[in-house]
């Protein structure tokens, strides 16, 4: 099939399969899946600028499907998502400026690669430690069966004391997040988490769900199921903004995104429904390979010079 906007010939079946795979990951973990979509589009000859922009457009559609499904399951905190979107957009702009500064200094590739490898490994190591410790402490308690209703979604975390200390910080204004079961939390903490996620998104590319989802759980104390659903809702807003700016610059082939999305639509629903069958610590443990895949791609790029 010929896609005139990017001037490429790609099999629609390939795009549907890629979309389906990313859809499952996105629906289950609340991530955009750029670390797969970008290289997958590059592999079939799509230029890097089109791969980035088109992936963002596809992320908007995939997240919209997953959010509708997560919302039906009670996994979306709209208030939190809207506040986070503001911080994410500001962070993404700051990250993009940082990239421009490094470009001028002439060492952008090395700095971005090293930072991303350190960040990806740190997230994975921390999440292995925390989820294993939590699962060990829960040994003997029922961990199987459907995870439905606010009570069953209430999370256990070995990092809980730190999270509670963060929630006790009284920096005005304080807001309540009843959907997430949080009585009061500083607005600045939410904006800070979103800003850091956005900063990495602008700095490293992609939606940075691999940073935002864990920080929502560990820093803000949002239950894992709600963090996944709310992160996806927030991604719709920030990725729409990204799609618009990239489309204006001529970096989006919406036809490729629409075809990919036909696969993602069904994958995202499967992923979202699957979250019902896993407890929070199990979802977090299963999340660990994702940042490691990201790190492996960066290491490959760094040592071979080939951009996937």
């Amino acid at each position: 099939m010929f896609f005139p906007i990017s001037g490429t010939h790609i099999s629609p079946i390939y795009l549907v399969i890629v979309g389906f795979t990313i859809g499952i990951l996105g629906g289950f973990f609340g991530v955009g899946g750029s670390f797969i979509a970008g290289p997958a589009l590059r592999l079939v000859g799509v230029d890097w600028n089109f791969a980035v922009g088109t992936d963002l457009a596809h992320i908007v559609g995939k997240s919209a499907v997953a959010v509708r499904r997560h919302r039906a399951l009670g996994n979306v905190d709209l208030k939190l998502g809207l506040v986070m979107a503001l911080g994410t957009i500001a962070g993404a702009e700051a990250g993009a400026q940082l990239i421009q500064m490094l470009k001028r200094a002439g060492n952008v590739n090395l700095v971005v690669s090293v930072v991303s490898i350190v960040v990806y490994f740190s997230i994975s190591v921390f999440m292995i430690w925390e989820s294993q410790k939590t699962l060990r402490s829960l040994k003997g308690r029922a961990q199987w069966g459907l995870v439905k209703g606010a009570k069953s979604k209430r999370d256990h975390s070995a990092f809980g004391p730190v999270t509670r200390a963060i929630q006790r910080l009284k920096i005005w204004p304080m807001i309540a997040l009843p959907t997430s079961g949080i009585k009061a939390i500083s607005l600045w903490m939410i904006l800070l988490v979103a800003f850091v996620g956005g900063l990495f998104s602008g700095f490293l590319g992609g939606g940075a769900g691999y940073i935002r989802m864990p920080s929502m759980v560990y820093v803000l104390g949002i239950p894992t199921h709600l963090a996944v659903g709310t992160d996806l809702f927030e991604i719709i807003i920030s990725a729409s903004y990204g799609t618009f700016t990239h489309a204006v610059k001529g970096n989006v082939d919406i036809l490729i995104a629409l075809v990919m999305h036909t696969g993602a639509a069904i994958g995202a629903q499967i992923g979202a429904i699957s979250t019902q069958y896993f407890t929070g610590p199990k979802i977090r443990l299963a999340f660990v390979p994702l940042p490691l895949i990201g790190a492996a791609i960066v290491i490959y790029t760094l040592f071979t010079g080939h951009k996937l």
Binding site: I5, H58, V60, G61, A64, R68, L258, H261, A265
Partner: peptide
């Protein structure tokens, strides 16, 4: 062909339409 023309001559319209199309398809497919 229509989107291709739009992308070349009316970037802002194309950018807005791209978002409408992808969200519209998402709602429809869901």
């Amino acid at each position: 062909a229509w989107l291709y023309g739009l992308e070349i001559h009316h970037r802002y319209t194309y950018a807005s339409l791209a978002i409408v199309l992808i969200i519209g398809q998402a709602v429809l497919l869901e």
